[in-house]
Amino acid sequence: MFNLMKIEMKKAKFGGYIKTSLIINIVIAAFVILIMSVDNSPNAQAHIQVNEASMQNNLSAILSFVSLFTKVAFIVYASVLLSRLVIDEFRNKTINILFMYPINRKKLIISKLLLIMTFTLINIIFANIMINAIFFIYNSFAHVVSFNFDTTLIVEHTISVIVTAITASCISMIPLFFGMRKYSVPTTIVSSIIVTSLLSSSFSSHFNLNDIIFIPISLSIIGLVIAYLAIFNIEKIDVTN
């Protein structure tokens, strides 16, 4: 399985995708810095700086802001990968060649999906670390916002990022359902945008566990079911496209 994933990475020239995700990270970091700078115009800042509680809110806002953005970006990015690695194989009929190899069809598809899910998971976790690091380093020079480092908050947030990353990597499988209907790349990407916009329609600086857990987990179960449906029948179908 690991070997198949390695071949898959070689085939897709995966280095390019890693580079792209680094670029996405930098863009999000720039965006976060921009938003935070605008948000903290002198008047607002004067207000914010007064009390301790809102300073804590500042930290939490930044962290959840980054978490939200990376989640949205990398679920959509996963749909691009789905298009390249799965949908395009069917569209270009290269799946015919793949299915003529002495390899279990299920394994072939699972390795592709697993690769995308792992990549999304790592991407989201890494992006959170990288973007937050960029922001705090920038902030230590530019002093865009001020806040107190609160260890419990950061621990809490780290857990939430990991949960988000896991659920997001499962949710990223949902576009497969729409994309596989007619092997269409636009459908795949558009459906991923719709899914993320549904998922992230409400945003508050306070995160509570229910918010993080309930909807994402049910959606990620749907994602896993879709991924399962994509592979469970693959042994029996005719490849006639």
Binding site: I7, N96, L98, M100, Y101
Partner: peptide, 30 residues
């Protein structure tokens, strides 16, 4: 299937890869 070589319908390849890379992939999968 590992004992069969084939072209079916049209010769289909991974278009963006070179001839050599295509054959390398083939060997790895086989």
């Amino acid at each position: 299937l590992g004992r069969i070589g084939s072209i079916i319908e049209n010769p289909i390849f991974y278009d963006k890869l070179t001839a050599k890379e295509n054959l390398e992939l083939h060997c790895e999968y086989m």
